[in-house]
Amino acid sequence: MYETKGSYEDIINLPHHASSKRPQMPMLDRAAQFSPFAALTGYDDAIHETGRLTDEKIDLSEEEKEALDRKQQILMERLCDHPALTVTYFVPDAKKSGGAYVTKSGSLKTIDEFERWILLTDGTKIPLDDVADIESELIRNMF
């Protein structure tokens, strides 16, 4: 039948087969079929979420609360002028405890003392209970 001349000596020098019906697979796709797969779907996202840092909401002292109330009253008196201001406030995180402090600049549209929020002219609604600081040229001139 077949002679055994050694290890693959009968085919070692034959030309590489190339199909005339199918195109050759790109090297990137060939390599991808041997790459590892994610056995635990979502594991990387969970690790990233766990490692993401959040800030705790700071409880303001009575003096800081009184200062914010005075600033709010000054702004209420000049509400018709739509004063420019910068508000620093706490935004709770949707996925874990804590959150982040955000600073937003804009013009004041209104303050609703009953529902406790500030509305800027761009439509941003900020809960008064989450406000840490308010800055404005109008307030600087008063203090």
Rank of each mutant, 00 (worst) to 15 (best):
residue 72 Q to D: 04
residue 134 I to T: 01
residue 53 L to H: 06
residue 67 A to V: 10
residue 141 N to G: 12
residue 41 T to N: 05
residue 28 L to S: 13
residue 47 I to A: 06
residue 86 T to I: 11
residue 19 S to G: 02
residue 73 Q to D: 13
residue 38 A to L: 06
residue 35 S to Q: 12
residue 46 A to K: 11
residue 97 S to R: 14
residue 4 T to D: 14
residue 72 Q to R: 15
residue 33 Q to M: 13
residue 119 L to S: 03
residue 1 M to C: 07
residue 117 W to Y: 15
residue 77 E to N: 15
residue 38 A to P: 00
residue 24 Q to F: 05
residue 61 S to A: 09
residue 64 E to K: 10
residue 3 E to P: 00
residue 72 Q to I: 12
residue 113 E to M: 06
residue 39 A to P: 00
residue 111 I to F: 03
residue 21 K to I: 07
residue 57 K to T: 01
residue 100 A to L: 12
residue 33 Q to N: 07
residue 119 L to T: 03
residue 54 T to F: 03
residue 12 I to Q: 14
residue 104 K to Y: 05
residue 48 H to N: 08
residue 64 E to S: 11
residue 70 R to N: 12
residue 60 L to G: 01
residue 108 L to A: 01
residue 52 R to N: 04
residue 89 Y to R: 05
residue 64 E to H: 08
residue 87 V to F: 05
residue 116 R to W: 01
residue 62 E to N: 06
residue 76 M to D: 09
residue 126 I to D: 00
residue 18 A to P: 00
residue 111 I to R: 01
residue 3 E to Y: 07
residue 100 A to H: 13
residue 36 P to D: 06
residue 22 R to F: 11
residue 43 Y to K: 06
residue 14 L to H: 10
residue 34 F to P: 00
residue 71 K to S: 13
residue 30 R to N: 04
residue 66 E to W: 02
residue 51 G to Q: 11
residue 16 H to L: 13
residue 41 T to S: 08
residue 91 V to D: 10
residue 118 I to F: 06
residue 21 K to N: 06
residue 1 M to W: 06
residue 139 I to P: 01
residue 72 Q to W: 04
